[in-house]
Design a protein around this nucleic acid. Structure first.
Length: 603
DNA sequence: CAGGGAGTAT
DNA sequence: ATACTCC
């Protein structure tokens, strides 16, 4: 029986889990050294702007430290070899490879930044224990402290097995990618992360639960506890809580005067090495963004250049990601004599997914789409800056912050059909009936090879392909059967079930003629770019009088009665928050191939 | 303090 | 939708 679950009422005694934390040694530097092995023997620093963000161990011998000014670093080590690390493309790629390797073991993998991962190997350990003679189990690597006696719950044995798994993982990462790593093994994330660096570089450390509280007191200050950052530290210090021991000893009630109840409890737990936060499987990023900082920019045209350069680099990243963005955020930092950094301000808005197209599985943006994005960006910029007054920026950033979501939960016909729309809308229309290049392909403009100087301008040139307007009229017939039969997996996320989103969808897809059928004020005022879009249209041919133009009448008539009614109601009043529901079973049974053809592509 | 992100609170 | 916090 599982020793962890039945008898413990005190969560602090729960040693049931086995967590591994893996941290790549001087990550950026190792990426560079793997790429150029001759760098291995040299003191190497990775430079971003005027700062050495990390260095290899050779350089550390000279006293090179993280986030050291380049000038200071060169004083300490005149021979320091500097490599520009402002373009994170290759680091991100390496990070993903590591993550992928870690996925080979089962159990959730949680990415923390680019060079750290948590893996919950609890289940793996249990399985291994079934096939192993318990007495023969040995620990791999170092331990923080000799265990005095066997813990009754068996956690020592489990953590030993986990340490062997950690060793396997690190070996695999080294064999396949050439990166050395450190690992921490513990019964929770907190301790695993904290002991990880105890034997640097290229080694691992295991800590047993019984030593958690003791180990925590070896930390210098509360600040070294993960999740306790500068602000929390400030508050703690203002209460004379400096060391972890201070935190262990302070009463919960005192903490509750300065923190929320949850936070107060959390702090107390952390102070004694307790942490029940789960390892959460990481997925694809929820945002993809870039920023560029500089001394100062005070001219609008310069701002525009910065944004254009960022946008073009960003589109490459988005293309690699493959998902279609639906929301765009502009960030900037005004020069501020008081605060040294931060103070970012941002504005965001939805963008029409129709800006993006998929061709041959590759996300592309037309020249026109790019211009539209720039106009959106500058409009957001205007929201942040009063152009009638002087301004001084020290940073601009651009990020796509939302992507097409999967259809979760609600089983409305709307979801179902929207899914079909999305599939249809990303089909490669051009290839079948128009083979000439009609969209910008960014694959040739990859900046990943840039190892030099300033990324802020020039280095990414738009591929000078001739933009060409696509005749969207009558493209619908270009859809081949094959395409319909093997639709893209992409899903549309603009489409949620609330009325707002529904309006957008309608707005996007209704022809001008049908728009008049929508008895509502313009819903697009949030997004002027869409409003002004001339939606060249689509679909001559059969529509029912009450249907939007994207509906094929024949298909519509083929639908079951209840579905027809539901759709009509929706079109009649898209704003209705209480959409009629119909049986999802029913829907899924209803000839998907027919439904697939339900909508025509839109511009 | 560079460049990304994630998560939370409001 | 934004700001703040943290890594």
């Amino acid at each position: 029986m599982d020793s962890s679950s039945s008898t413990f009422t005190d969560v602090s005694s729960d040693h049931s889990k086995s967590i591994i934390h893996i941290d790549v040694d001087c990550f950026y530097a190792q990426v560079e050294m793997v790429r150029k092995p001759e760098l291995r023997s040299l003191p190497l620093g990775i430079q971003q702007k005027n700062i050495v963000v990390t260095s290899n161990y050779e350089a550390r011998k000279y006293g090179i430290r993280k986030c050291m000014l380049v000038s200071d670093a060169l004083k300490v080590c005149p021979n320091l070899k500097l490599v520009n690390g402002e373009d994170l493309h290759d680091y991100r790629a390496a990070s993903n490879k590591i993550f992928t390797i870690l996925q080979n073991w089962k159990g959730p993998v949680e990415k923390l930044g680019m060079d750290e991962n948590f893996i919950d190997v609890t289940n793996l350990v249990q399985e291994k224990l079934k096939n192993i003679n318990v007495t023969s189990i040995t620990l791999s690597g170092n331990m923080y402290c000799e265990p005095s006696e066997e813990c009754p719950c068996g956690c020592h044995t489990r953590l030993k097995v986990a340490s062997q798994i950690a060793s396997e993982m690190r070996n695999k990462i080294y064999d396949e990618l050439g990166f050395t790593t450190c690992a921490g093994i513990a019964h929770n994330k907190l301790l695993a992360k904290l002991v990880c660096p105890l034997n640097k570089p290229n080694d691992q450390t295991t800590i047993f639960p019984e030593h958690g509280a003791n180990f925590m007191t070896t930390l210098q200050s509360v600040r070294s506890i993960p999740s306790i950052g500068s602000k929390t530290t400030e508050v703690l210090i203002s209460q004379k809580i400096i060391t972890v021991s201070d935190l262990q000893e302070v009463s919960l009630d005192v903490l509750k005067k300065h923190f929320s109840g949850d936070m107060a409890v959390r702090l107390k737990c952390l102070s004694v090495g307790e942490d029940n936060t789960p390892v959460k499987q990481s997925g694809r990023p929820q945002s993809i963004g870039l920023e560029d900082s500089f001394k100062t920019v005070s001219v609008k045209s310069e701002v525009e250049e910065k944004f254009l350069a960022l946008l073009q680099r960003l589109l490459i990243l988005v293309r690699e990601d493959g998902r279609i963005p639906v929301s765009l955020r502009v960030t900037l930092r005004k020069r501020d004599v008081k605060r040294l950094s931060s103070h970012r301000e941002s504005r965001q808005c939805q963008v029409s997914p129709s800006i993006f197209t998929i061709s041959n599985g590759t996300l592309t943006v037309t020249e026109a789409g790019q211009q539209k994005l720039m106009s959106i960006i500058m409009r957001l910029f205007n929201k942040l800056i009063d152009l009638s007054k002087p301004f001084h920026l020290t940073l601009v950033g651009l990020a796509f912050t939302k992507f097409q979501e999967r259809m979760t939960g609600r089983s409305s016909i709307v979801n179902y059909l929207m899914n079909d729309i999305s599939v249809q809308s990303v089909l490669n229309i051009q290839n079948d009936c128009d083979t000439s290049a009609s969209s910008m392909d960014y694959s040739a403009a990859s900046p990943s090879s840039s190892t030099t100087t300033d990324l802020s301008d020039g280095e990414v040139e738009p591929s000078p392909k001739k933009p060409k307007k696509v005749n969207w009229i009558a493209k619908r017939r270009c859809l081949s059967k094959e395409e319909v039969a093997s639709p893209s997996k992409l899903k549309v996320g603009e489409l949620r079930l609330n009325s707002k989103e529904l309006e957008k969808v309608s707005e996007l897809r209704l022809s001008s003629r049908d728009r008049s059928l929508t008895p509502r004020a313009s819903p697009a005022k949030d997004n002027p770019s869409d409003a002004s879009d001339s939606m060249k249209d689509v679909a001559e041919g059969g529509k029912c009088a009450d249907c939007p133009s994207y509906v094929d009448k024949e298909v519509f008539n083929a639908l079951p009665d209840n579905m027809q009614q539901e759709l009509k109601a929706m079109w009649k009043n898209p704003a209705s928050s209480e959409l009629p529901r119909s049986s999802p079973r029913n829907l899924n049974k209803a000839k998907p191939n027919t439904l697939l053809k339900y909508f025509v592509p839109h511009k």
